[in-house]
């Protein structure tokens, strides 16, 4: 049974696209058929991070408007044959997305894939609400600073009211992915600590990705960070997060803090 994940945040620049690519590649590496869908119509970036920008012919909007068939628009990754990309259109805007069209495309993707990962645009308007509309699971990407946390809180409220699941009286499974975390700065008080963020948002934590130059390097060479260097600290964090998404229990570590020094950092979970 296919699972639809939305990667969302409200705020821009927190790492939604990076996380979509990294989680998508991590799930595909487990031999599960995965597609990453770019909902950021007009400001697409996922194709660059996936290194597929020179192979885009048709896009999501073409499929929605019936100008192309879904298999024509899907781009298979050159490194992993279980990983696919459905790019967004760069020449259109979010009004080109229709609720009916998105519903049709999502239904078709669910037939062919194990995981459908939707990369939401920033904001709370049409693009973002349509990206979350059909989600079973939401990954809320948050930076450890107050504006990002408040925007994430707003998005969680929308996930509980504007999604198809919420309208059926069901719930979207929500997970917090804390990105660009710097333990030293959090300790100095320049950044919110993990516990502060968890206390405010009160949703379970799925991973802590450290601030790292590896992320930028991976984007520049057009590879998801989990494929570019699977030994790097951010890659390890994303690989663990992907395992947790599939239901495995993996002990949580805070990057930059010495392992085992504090017993409480293992199995950290919020209500």
């Amino acid at each position: 049974m296919a699972k639809v994940i939305v990667v969302t945040s409200g705020k821009g620049g927190v790492g939604k696209t990076t996380s979509t690519a990294a989680l998508g590649a991590a799930l595909a590496q487990r031999n599960e058929k995965t597609v990453v869908v770019d909902f950021d119509v007009g400001l697409r970036n996922l194709d660059l991070v996936m290194g597929a920008e020179r192979r885009v012919v048709y896009d999501l909007v073409n499929v929605i408007q019936g100008d192309a068939k879904l298999p024509q628009a899907l781009i298979r990754d050159k490194r992993l044959d279980t990983l696919f990309l459905l790019p967004a259109s760069q020449t259109r805007d979010k009004d080109a997305l229709t609720p009916e069209g998105v519903e049709r495309v999502m239904a078709e993707l669910k037939k062919h894939f194990d995981w459908v990962i939707c990369d939401s645009p920033a904001g709370i308007e049409r693009g973002a609400t349509l990206a979350m509309r059909h989600a079973d699971i939401a990954v809320i990407v948050t930076n450890p600073e107050v504006s990002s946390v408040r925007d994430s809180d707003r998005i969680i409220g929308l996930l509980d009211s504007k999604t198809e699941r919420a309208e059926r009286g069901d719930r979207v499974e929500k997970h917090l992915l804390l990105t660009r975390y710097d333990a030293a700065r959090a300790e100095r008080g320049d950044m919110l600590k993990v516990d502060d963020v968890l206390e405010i948002l009160s949703i379970p934590l799925i991973g802590i990705v450290p601030e790292s130059t590896d992320v930028l390097r991976a984007s520049n060479i057009g590879a998801p960070v989990t494929l570019a260097d699977s030994r790097s600290a951010p890659a390890l964090a994303y690989l663990d997060a992907a395992r947790r998404l599939t239901g495995e229990t993996v002990p949580m570590t805070i990057p930059g803090e010495k392992r085992g020094l504090f017993g409480k950092i293992f199995g950290r979970r919020a209500a």
Binding site: I124, D151, R154, G157, L158
Partner: peptide, 8 residues
């Protein structure tokens, strides 16, 4: 019975 989120 649940948190009241930003914007609500």
């Amino acid at each position: 019975r649940e948190p009241v989120r930003s914007g609500q």
